[in-house]
Design a binder for these strands. Structure first.
Lengths: 214, 214
DNA sequence: ATTTACCTCCCCCGCGCGGGGGATATAAAA
DNA sequence: TTTTATATCCCCCGCGCGGGGGAGGTAAAT
């Protein structure tokens, strides 16, 4: 069987590994090539065995799933990575997903669903557990209503403050006096409690007042 | 049947609407309550009919899907929103998803999959088409190797430039002369082709040199 | 009718900072 | 060995900008 999916398991709990093996053995096109108990060992095994996909636990001693994912991404970018974690949706979801994995499932996943997830990932898709997906989407929502309330004019000025323009140049473009712009800028810094333009712009980005890219 | 899922269709192509109606009629627990040909009309209908979920086309005249989604989110946050679009995965995916929708499917979706998607969304999950999910995940990847190469020391200085510290204060913390810091800063601005500290910091964030949040 | 919010404009001061020119030392690369 | 990159340090100049003050005018809220 040349096109069986070669799987590497990495989890610090032997029980979990055995359980996964049982589940994966049910599928005739799956082949568990090896197991490892932490990221460091798993990384070495992945490099030498070159599996199609690794199922890796997020929380592990020595080297956790996130570190391992980053390392494996660099050394063997073609190996798919499916992250496993407990039922709790970790707050590190964002970072972990950004580490460049293809799948993220919780351990309470239905066996059949796990099989489908692996197939999906091997098929070039990305598989995220519904709860994880929700979290990821939530994190890209426009940020909470800004704790600082700027007037419409001030909003306009803040946007200009994020450009290379000097206050004088901004004044010209808005057809007002430089003093007016400077006055607004002063009020903005005051409201945002920021010491200077650079910090104010950065804070505005963090608050979602300014889009980083448009 | 009190618990049928009440669906509102919004698409500027009558053919597409009819097709969707055919598909959705197959499911006994779906009920298409009405249709609309653009976002403006659809928004009014949604407000008066209060459906469980709206399927809305992304590209439409008068008011497109994104605008409508934003408006509907504000007026009726409980109504689920499933975005529809052509086979092309739009570059606006990020914005659209950030508009706060629950689902995003392409029009070439299998009917059965669409039905599952609707059920998933009604079940409180988020459903993104695999290609869309991939795109979303890609967009959270660490950015490409920076076009500007800063020396280790310069990297350090850039991070400090994103803080409220003045160059003098940075110098103290790094135990070097203020002149040294200023010198590095000058080289950084030169390399990044940025006119001032504020712009340099912003550019650094965009490039992924600096994490917005730590 | 008085207050409040907002936008507009002005002056002064002093420091931060960008831009220009250097210099010196070390270590790696050519 | 000579060049190149990196890190350190120095001086000068002038403008940008932060912080302090104040003033006038309109419009909405009270």
């Amino acid at each position: 069987m040349p096109d069986r999916i070669r799987i590497l398991l990495i989890d610090d709990h032997a029980v979990v590994r055995k359980g996964l093996v049982m589940v994966l053995r049910q599928e005739s096109d799956f082949e568990v090539v090896d197991e490892a108990e932490n990221g460091r060992i798993g990384l070495e095994l992945a490099k030498s065995l070159d599996p199609d996909i690794v199922l890796v636990d997020l929380v592990m001693p020595e080297m956790d799933g996130q570190e391992m994912a980053l390392a494996l991404r660099k050394s063997n970018p073609d190996i798919k990575i499916m992250m496993l974690t407990g039922t709790e949706v970790d707050d590190r979801v964002h970072e972990v997903v950004a580490a460049g994995i293809e799948g993220y499932v919780l351990k309470n996943i239905e066996p059949g669903e796990l099989v489908r997830a692996i197939h999906a990932v091997m098929n070039g898709e990305a598989y995220l557990h519904p709860d994880v997906m929700k979290k990821v989407i939530e994190m890209m929502q426009p940020h909470q209503p800004h704790p600082v309330s700027l007037t419409p004019r001030e909003m306009e000025i803040v946007e200009y403050m994020a450009t290379p323009n000097t206050y004088k140049q901004i004044a010209v473009q808005l057809s007002v006096s430089e003093e007016t712009v400077r006055s607004h800028a002063k009020n903005i810094l005051e409201k945002m409690k920021q010491p200077n333009r650079a910090q104010a712009v950065l804070a505005a980005v963090k608050m979602g007042l300014i889009k980083l890219n448009g």
